[in-house]
């Protein structure tokens, strides 16, 4: 069974992203970039399925600029077998990414495609579901546990009310939530080995696709920041202020 994992290069989640002083866009010039944390979880799951003898090959794919090869190398160092970069300098909205991934799936014929549940930069939470629609495959989003058995995959999903278990017939799409696993750190020897693993580059046009934008960003702004309040000295003072000043306690 072949597994395809989609990985995205994003700003480090620990960095507070700001606007450029002139408001013309995001100030990402000095920001450290990493693999989207949910995608690390997706790669880890695929590699574990390979180690368990369930998957035969793990292919990682990213849609983005040249620099996204670094992200693919990280995935290869974690244990993926082969990388594919579909190069574009254009803005990659989930619908466009889903179309590219669907074309890649057409060529690669994986039995399972793993994605992150959301990218922590744009927080869209769409790509996996859109890809499932484009391919006409079943989907299991927000996975916290996954088990493959023959041509079926059973997934426990984190939902608002608790958790839901569903079973899908392969081929299928699964998007990873935080508690699916704890991704490994790539060891130095594996980072060296990853440099020799195959990494192919293609263009969207190779698949007969044009990456187009459907959303026009009209404005970017920083929301008003919340001013820090006061420090109270005691529980008694806290209760008093909540009652009289804030008016949130009767």
């Amino acid at each position: 069974m072949k597994i395809l994992v989609a990985v995205k290069r994003v700003a480090d989640p620990n960095v507070k992203v700001r606007l450029r002083a002139d408001g013309s866009g995001l100030d990402l010039a000095a920001v450290k970039m990493t693999m989207n944390p949910f995608d690390e979880i997706a790669v880890e799951e695929a590699v574990r399925l390979k180690e368990a003898g369930i998957a035969s090959e793990v292919v990682v794919v990213s849609v983005g600029p040249d620099k996204a090869t670094e992200t693919l190398r990280t995935a290869l160092a974690m244990g993926a077998d082969r990388g594919l970069l579909v190069r574009t300098e254009a803005t990659t909205e989930p619908l466009a990414v889903a179309k590219v991934l669907s074309a890649v799936a057409g060529e690669e014929q994986p039995a399972l495609i793993l994605l992150g549940k959301q990218a922590i930069d744009d927080d869209c939470n769409q790509t996996g579901q859109m890809l499932a629609a484009k391919l006409g495959w079943p989907q299991a989003t927000f996975a916290s546990q996954l088990a493959v058995d023959g041509d079926r995959v059973t997934v426990i999903r984190e939902v608002d009310g608790g958790s839901q278990t569903i079973a899908l017939t392969l081929p299928a799409i699964v998007t990873a939530d935080l508690r699916l696993n704890e991704p490994r750190y790539a060891s130095l020897p594996n980072i060296m080995k990853a440099k020799k693993k195959p990494l192919e580059e293609r263009q969207a046009s190779d698949y007969g696709l044009v990456i187009e934008e459907r959303l026009e960003v009209v404005r970017l702004e920083e929301p008003p920041t919340r001013a820090a309040g006061i420090k109270v000295k005691s529980v008694a003072e806290l209760v008093e202020r909540l009652k009289t000043e804030a008016g949130v306690l009767a």
Binding site: D121, E216, V218, E221
Partner: peptide, 16 residues
């Protein structure tokens, strides 16, 4: 809509 964990608010126009 908020992006980057709510540190930036984006205003978008849909072309669809």
């Amino acid at each position: 809509r908020p992006i980057y964990a709510g540190n930036i608010v984006q205003t978008v126009r849909s072309k669809d």
